[in-house]
Measured scan of single mutants.
Amino acid sequence: KELVLALYDYQEKSPREVTMKKGDILTLLNSTNKDWWKVEVADRQGFVPAAYVKKL
C-alpha cells in the first residue's frame, strides 16, 4: 500500500474529510482526483487536499 506524508495540519470541514497533523503518515487509498486524495488515518477514511500531502 502507498503512504503519504502530511505536509501541513488540516482540519476537516465536512464528514467526508479527515483531520491530519503535519508529519502524520497516512495510507493513500485513491489519488485519481488531482485536488482531493482519499486517505486512511486512525481507522477513518476520508479526503484531504492533495497539495497538503506528499507521496513517500
Rank of each mutant, 00 (worst) to 15 (best):
D43Y: 10
K34Y: 08
L28A: 02
K1P: 13
R44I: 06
A51S: 14
D35H: 15
L26K: 00
K22R: 11
E2K: 09
S31D: 15
V39D: 00
L26H: 03
K38A: 09
L26R: 01
Q45H: 10
Q11C: 11
A51P: 09
D43K: 09
W37S: 03
K55E: 08
T32I: 09
T32F: 10
N33V: 05
V48E: 00
G46Q: 01
K54T: 14
K38C: 14
L3T: 08
L29A: 04
D35Q: 13
Y10H: 04
E2T: 13
Y8A: 11
W36M: 06
G46T: 02
Y10R: 02
A51T: 13
G46H: 02
K55N: 07
D9V: 02
K38T: 09
V53E: 02
A42G: 15
A42I: 12
P49H: 03
Y52H: 09
R16L: 14
W36R: 03
R44L: 06
A6H: 00
A6G: 04
E17T: 08
W37E: 01
V41M: 15
Q11G: 07
L5F: 09
G46F: 08
A6F: 02
V18G: 02
Q45N: 10
L56N: 03
P49S: 02
L56I: 15
E17H: 06
S31C: 12
Q45E: 11
G23C: 10
V53P: 02
L7E: 04
A42Y: 13
K21N: 08
Q11R: 10
R44G: 07
L7I: 11
T27N: 09
E12P: 14
P49I: 03
K38R: 11
S14Y: 07
W36Q: 03
L56A: 05
D35S: 12
V53H: 01
L29R: 03
R16P: 06
M20S: 00
D43W: 08
V53D: 02
A6N: 00
N30F: 06
K38G: 05
K54N: 07
L26C: 09
K34N: 12
P49Q: 02
N33I: 07
L5Y: 10
A6V: 12
K54V: 15
L28R: 01
Q45T: 12
E17I: 04
D35M: 12
S14C: 11
S31L: 05
V18Q: 03
T32K: 12
K21F: 10
L7S: 03
D35T: 12
E12S: 15
L3H: 09
W36A: 02
V39I: 08
W37I: 05
L28Q: 00
Y52L: 14
K54H: 12
A6D: 00
K38F: 15
V4H: 03
L7W: 04
K13L: 09
T19K: 04
L28V: 07
A50H: 04
K34D: 12
S14W: 06
D9C: 05
D9E: 05
K54L: 13
L3Q: 10
N30S: 13
L26W: 03
K38Q: 14
V53L: 15
D9H: 06
T32R: 10
T27F: 12
N33P: 05
E12T: 08
A50Y: 02
L56V: 12
A50K: 06
A50P: 06
E2W: 11
T32S: 15
R44S: 06
L3W: 14
V48Q: 00
V48G: 01
A50N: 03
K55Y: 10
T19R: 06
E12M: 12
V18M: 12
V48H: 00
T32L: 10
V39W: 00
N30Q: 11
G23P: 00
S14R: 09
K22I: 06
L29W: 06
M20R: 00
E40V: 10
E40C: 12
L5C: 10
R16N: 13
T19Q: 05
V48D: 02
L3M: 12
G46W: 04
L7M: 09
V53N: 01
A6C: 13
L3C: 12
L28K: 01
G23E: 02
S14V: 05
V41Y: 12
Y10P: 01
S14D: 12
E17K: 04
T27E: 12
E40T: 07
D35F: 14
L5P: 00
G23Y: 05
M20A: 02
D24N: 07
G46N: 00
T19A: 07
E17V: 05
R16T: 13
W37K: 01
Q45S: 13
G23W: 07
Y8P: 00
S14N: 12
N30L: 10
N30I: 09
A51L: 12
R44N: 06
R44W: 05
M20G: 01
R44Q: 07
E2I: 14
A42Q: 13
N30R: 06
K55H: 09
Q45M: 11
E17S: 06
S31M: 09
W36E: 04
Q45R: 11
P49W: 04
K38I: 14
V41D: 13
K34E: 10
T32H: 10
E40W: 06
W36P: 00
Y10W: 11
A51G: 12
F47E: 04
G23L: 03
Q45Y: 08
D9L: 03
N33L: 11
V48T: 01
E2G: 10
Y8V: 11
D43T: 09
Y52K: 09
V53S: 01
V4K: 00
I25M: 06
L26T: 01
T27K: 12
K21W: 10
A50S: 13
K55I: 14
V41A: 15
E2Y: 11
L5D: 01
V48W: 01
L56E: 04
V4E: 00
L5W: 07
T27D: 06
W37P: 01
I25C: 07
A6W: 01
T27C: 11
W37H: 03
S14K: 07
L3S: 08
K55S: 08
L3G: 03
D35I: 14
V4D: 01
V39A: 01
D43R: 08
T32D: 15
V18D: 00
K55R: 15
T32N: 13
E40P: 00
K54S: 12
L26N: 01
T32C: 13
Q11T: 14
L7R: 05
V4A: 11
L56T: 07
R16I: 12
Y8F: 13
Y52S: 14
L29N: 03
F47P: 00
V18N: 03
K21T: 09
Y10S: 00
E2M: 13
D24I: 05
K1G: 10
P49K: 04
D43G: 15
E17Q: 11
Y52C: 14
L5N: 02
N30G: 07
V18F: 09
G46A: 03
R16W: 15
R44H: 07
K13Y: 05
K55F: 10
Y8R: 15
M20E: 01
K13W: 05
K13I: 07
L7Q: 04
D9T: 06
Y52E: 03
R16D: 13
V48P: 01
K34S: 12
V18C: 10
V41H: 15
G23T: 02
K22H: 06
R16H: 13
D9S: 08
L7G: 02
Y52A: 14
Q11D: 14
F47M: 09
Y8H: 12
D24Q: 14
Y8C: 14
M20F: 10
E2P: 11
N33S: 11
A6P: 00
K55Q: 09
S14Q: 08
R16Q: 13
G46C: 04
F47C: 12
V41W: 07
K34H: 12
L28W: 01
L3I: 09
L3R: 11
V39T: 00
R16K: 12
Y8K: 15
E17G: 11
A50V: 07
A6M: 02
G46D: 00
L7P: 00
K55D: 05
T27R: 12
V18H: 03
L3V: 08
V18R: 02
V4N: 00
T19N: 07
L5I: 15
Q11H: 14
